[in-house]
Every structure is written in structure tokens, then in C-alpha cells.
Write a protein that binds this DNA or RNA. Structure first.
Lengths: 195, 195, 195, 195
DNA sequence: CATGAATGAGCCTTCATTCAT
DNA sequence: AATGAATGAAGGCTCATTCAT
């Protein structure tokens, strides 16, 4: 990658990060291109040098977040730890990330209305991939006798709900930092699956 | 109340119900007055006969849902049942209601951006009232030795997250009806607090 | 005229009077049917029993005012007084009426945009009739040697401007009543024509 | 000021000028943003690049006209001429300007309904400043024995009425140009104050 | 006669998007 | 690469008007 290309890639990433936080805060329709641009001291027009349109920008911001999440879960799955600890770890990471980046993972309610069919397919594929990371861990825990779960998908979604929702109520004002917070919440969420 | 008045009240209620479901699905900015109207085979203009503006409509729809929720929790709290059963019951009711009405309870991300100061005050007051209904039950369970909870507020929000999120993933296609579904999810969520 | 007819006529007149004052204050586009109705504790719909539409209502309100004005000037013209006194009298009457009824005589700027061709024709005809009342007096004064006026139409319009404008600045707060006020202003305006 | 900035300023001024003429003709409510835009072969949306909203546009157009008027009167007041000539001159300038720009000076009936409190304050302040320019000249003329005026404010408003009203009836069709017209009308208006 | 309710056209405003420079 | 300027589509809201009761 040339210097120029690297510079462009870096700029793109900055935009995505900024967009992510704004999107989480105000939703798709509530976030304007102007918002995203001015947040980075750019002009609206410049954004279009990096992204085809708003849909594209939001799509890529989703991809970014999901790839990172999938990476996270894959990393953790590989660790040589009891399944209980691995699940708790990934839950804590998810929460910490959500809170720090202020990015509601799937807060983009009803992606059907936003994305093109093709984009939607990829998004749903990645969501599923991420979700099945949890499913695998849950199944493993059930098999090992550590977890008591009869409805893997229901439980997985319940876990994700409890995790994703934190962006709605976590406040930095408290005496806790994000890491401590994530650890505590993860502990409670784990109870859902533990025997 | 005269016949006319009752009819008007009913119409208002229909609009609120329709709005609620659309708002939960597409968010504040994603839901247009046109959407709400055409969903009821009305015209945009008619809505303004019943509500001052969009803000007012959304505000009242929030009030409606929150009053009903607060009623629900108060009813259940009065029941002569062990605290464990009472909490589980209210969780199940919340979920069933959320799923049936397709209304995300607090899905209005960042109400600060939507409501007036005065409206916001009332909304937050009611939110708090509903939340403290859970807090009371949690405290009671802790005192009675049934629950093991060290961070009441964190746990309460975690519960609410798991509950509210169901609107994002529950699908009627499954073989379960809403009641069965709610019962199952409530059981899992209860594990967060049980000793 | 039957009792019913007289009642209807009276109601029509009340509406016209109320409309006149609102129109003078807020202009054609600034005055809504709702304004006019609620000012009389009626509902919008009722107005349509008495008038075909807003245009008609405003048209008739203009006719009313202009007929009355033309009557006034004709009455005064007939009086057995020197032309100077007759002109001063009609000017004072115009001003007093304008101020009391809060009706800007021709404040309906650009009637072309409001009225139909036919209505416009009548309006302009009456305006002209009223104006030529002044022209006659001016000519008479010139002939009698009382007035010194070389441009009758220009002077007539200048007079009317000074008169009509009073609705913009007369305030009841002052220590004068409308009659005294009209008398004083008329005196000054008369200087425009006096030798 | 850069070229760009000058261009922008010029564009803004064009819009103001166009708006002024339309507002004088059709009033605030009767003039649409579409009107103003299409008059300049622009689109509605473009106007919003230069002005925050309609209120802002109209407010600035008023400021423009009033600042210019106040400048005019101040210039004339400084001239080394008898007070009679100075007053006649400013009246003629006012009329000529009103007619040429087709801008009714204070034709914005009831500004209270249009402007914000803050805007209103400034507008009224400037109105007053302009008016007191006339008051000063009137007082000076009284003191010098040239004018015969017992009610300065009433006379000032009467003068302004006669002047402002010209936009309602001056027609280019005549054989006179604006300058000649203004001179003649000013002469007649002067009679109001002359001894 | 009066009114509650509904409608649709029109206006103000926002915003994603484009494009010349 | 960046930006100032312009555009057009869409959304919120108002209001004249209609009509069944």
C-alpha cells in the first residue's frame, strides 16, 4: 500500500469511527452527513470522496464493527480456558467495547429499511456468524455440563439483549470505569446460562 | 363521556397504538407522519386533528405505554405471592406486551433530542417510577434471601435490557405463541437474580 | 325581509365586521378562517353557511367598507358648506372610521392576487368612485380658488396615503380619543391642498 | 474580503433586494420562499444556504432597508442647507427609493407577529431612529420659524404615511420618471409643515 | 344551522447528493 | 483532496374547504 493509500485508508477509518458513535447515539435517520463531517472538522462534500453515499458509509461502519466483533469472539474461543471463562470474557469484551465506542451493536433497528438487498445479505450473514459464535460456546457449555440451557437461540438473544442494551443506560458519571463495569455486568449475565 | 367523545378517544388511542408499533420498528426519525397515517388508512392531515404535532403524538404514545407498564407492575406487586414469582410474572408480562404490541419500551434512543424539557421531565419521572418498581422487588428478594444481587440498579437495567431487546428478534413464525415465549424468556432472565 | 332573513343578514354583518378588523391587522394571508370564526365564538364550518369561501368573505368585507366610504363622501359632498370644510370633514371621517374599525382601507395590498377578475373589476370601480369623490372636491376647490393643486390625482393619492397610514401608528394608549385625533390629523393633511 | 466572499455577499444582497420587492407587493404571508427564489432563477433550497429561514431573510431585508434609510437621513441632515430644503430633500429621496426598489418601508404590518422578540427590538429601535431623524428636522424648522407644527409625532407619522403609500399607487406607465415624481410629491407633502 | 372530523394542496425546512473549481 | 454552492426530494405542518350527522 502506498503512502497515499494508507493515508486514505486511515481517513476512512476515522470517518467510520466518528460515524459509528453518532449513529449509535442518534440512529440512522437522526444522523446527518453534516453531523458526521462537522464532528471531524470536515465539510459534507469531502465525505463523498471516501464513501459513495450515506448508505455505503453506514454499511461499512457496520461491517467494521461486526468484523471486529467476530474477530474478538474468535480470539477468545481459541483461548485455552474453560468454556465458562471464555463466554464470560467475550461478554465482558462486548460490553466494554459497546460502552467505550458508544456503538450499539445492532442498534440499527430494522436494517431492512436502510440497506440494499446485497448489503443486507452480508450484514445478516455476519450477524449470524457472530451469533453462532455464542451458540457454539453455549452448546459446548451444555455438553460439558457447565451450562443449563434448553433453548440455545433464545438464550443467545437474551444474552445479546442484556449486552447491547448497556449503551442505553451506562453513564460515565458513575464511579466505575468501563472495564470494571463490563466485568460486573458480565458476571450477572453469566448467571443466565450457568447451572 | 358522550358517544362522540368516546369515539374520538378511541380514535386517538388507535393512532397511538399504531404509532407505537411503527416507532418501535423504525425509530423517531425513521417514522413519518405519513407512515402513521397510512397505516390506519387516514391522511397525514387528520392526525393533526388529534395531536398538536409529531412530538406531541410521540410523547403521548410514550406516556400511554409507561402508564400501562406502571399499572402492570403495581398490580403484580400487590399479589399475594412469593417475591420470586412476582418478579417472574412481571417480567413475563413485560415481554408479552412488548412482543404483542411490537412496542419497544424505551427504544426512543436519546429522548433528550426529541422531547421538550417539560415532556422529558415527565418521561424520565415515569421511567424512574417503573424502574423503581423493579428495584423494590429486587430489594425485597435480597432481604428475603431469595435473590443474590449486590448492584440493584445494574441488575435492574440488565433485566430491562434483556426484556426490551426481545422486540428485535422475536418472530411470530416460530412454533411458539407470545405467552409461551414470554414464559420461557422470563425463566432465563430470572436466573440473573436468583440465589 | 322575514325575521329569519334579517337574523341571517345580521349574522353576516357581524362576521364581516370581525373579519375586517382581523384582515386589517394581519392581512389576507395572515388571517385564517379559524381566526375569524373563533373571534366570534363560532366554528370554522359555520362561516361557510354565510359565505361561499374565504375569497367571498373578504370580497364582501371590502364591498361593505367601500360602500360605506362612498356613502360618507356623498353625504358630505351634499352639505351646504364651503369646499374647504367639506374636504376636511370627509378626511376626518375617513380617519376616524379607519382608526375605530381598525380597518386599513386599501391595506389589502395588491388585490389582483386575491380576487377574481370580476370581483377585482368591482373593487377597482368602487375605489375609483371613492377616489373621484376626492377629485371632484379638489377640482371644486381649485376652481373656487381655495386650493392650490396642479396634479389632482397625485395629490388625491397623497392625501389617501396620509389617511390610510394612520392605522399603522395610531395607538389608543394616547390621551386622545379617535375623534380628536382625526380632527387634528385632518387639519394637517388639509395643508397639502390649501392655498 | 476574498473574491468568494464578495460573491457570496453579492448574492445575499440580490436575494434581499428581490425579497424586499416581493414582500412590499404581497406581504409576509403572501410571499413564499418559492416566489423569492424563482424570481432570481434559483431554487427554494438555495436560499437556505444564505439565510437560516424565512424569518431571518425578512429580518435582514428590513435591516438593510432601514440602515440605508437612516444613512440617507443622516447624510442629508449634515448638508449645509436651510432646514426646509433638507426636509424636502430627504422626503424626495425616501419616495424615490421606495418607488424604485418597490419596497414599502414599513409595510410589514404587525411585525410583532413575524419577528422574534430580539429581532423586534432591533427593528423598533431602528424605526425609532429613523423617525427621530424627521423629528429633529421638524423641531429645527419650528425653532427657526420655518415650520408650523404643534404635534411633531403626529405630523411625522402623517408625512411618513403619505410617503410610504406611494408604493401602492405609483405606476411607471406615466410620463414621469421616479425622480420627477418624487420631486413633485415631496413638494406637496412639504406643505404639511410649512408656515 | 352548527359542528366534529377529514382531506389535500401548499408552504417551510432539512438533507443527501452533485459538481465546478 | 477539499469545499462552496446548488439542487430536488421528502417530511412536518397549516389551512381552506367539504360533508355527514
Amino acid at each position: 500500500m502506498s503512502l497515499r493509500e494508507r493515508k486514505t485508508a486511515k481517513r476512512k477509518d476515522e470517518i467510520l469511527k466518528s460515524a459509528l458513535s453518532l449513529l449509535a447515539e442518534k440512529g440512522y435517520h437522526g444522523t446527518t452527513m453534516e453531523d458526521i463531517a462537522s464532528h471531524l472538522f470536515m465539510t459534507k462534500g469531502s465525505i463523498y470522496y471516501y464513501f459513495k453515499d450515506k448508505q455505503d458509509l453506514v454499511y461499512q461502519s457496520q461491517l467494521k464493527i461486526m468484523h471486529r466483533s467476530i474477530n474478538n469472539i474468535n480470539e477468545v474461543k481459541k483461548l485455552d480456558l474453560p468454556v465458562t471463562e471464555r463466554l464470560e470474557k467475550i461478554i465482558a469484551i462486548h460490553i466494554e467495547y459497546a460502552v467505550r465506542e458508544r456503538a450499539g451493536f445492532e442498534l440499527m433497528v430494522n436494517p431492512n429499511e436502510i440497506f440494499s438487498a446485497e448489503q443486507l445479505k452480508e450484514i445478516l450473514y455476519l450477524r449470524d456468524k457472530y451469533a453462532s459464535g455464542y451458540d457454539d460456546l453455549l452448546q459446548e457449555g451444555v455438553d460439558s455440563g457447565d451450562f443449563s440451557v434448553d433453548h440455545i437461540k433464545i438464550v443467545r438473544n437474551t444474552l445479546l439483549g442484556a449486552m447491547n442494551w448497556v449503551t442505553q443506560w451506562f453513564s460515565f458519571e458513575g464511579e466505575m470505569n468501563e472495564k470494571q463495569f463490563a466485568t460486573i455486568v458480565a458476571k450477572y449475565i453469566m448467571r443466565i446460562v450457568l447451572k
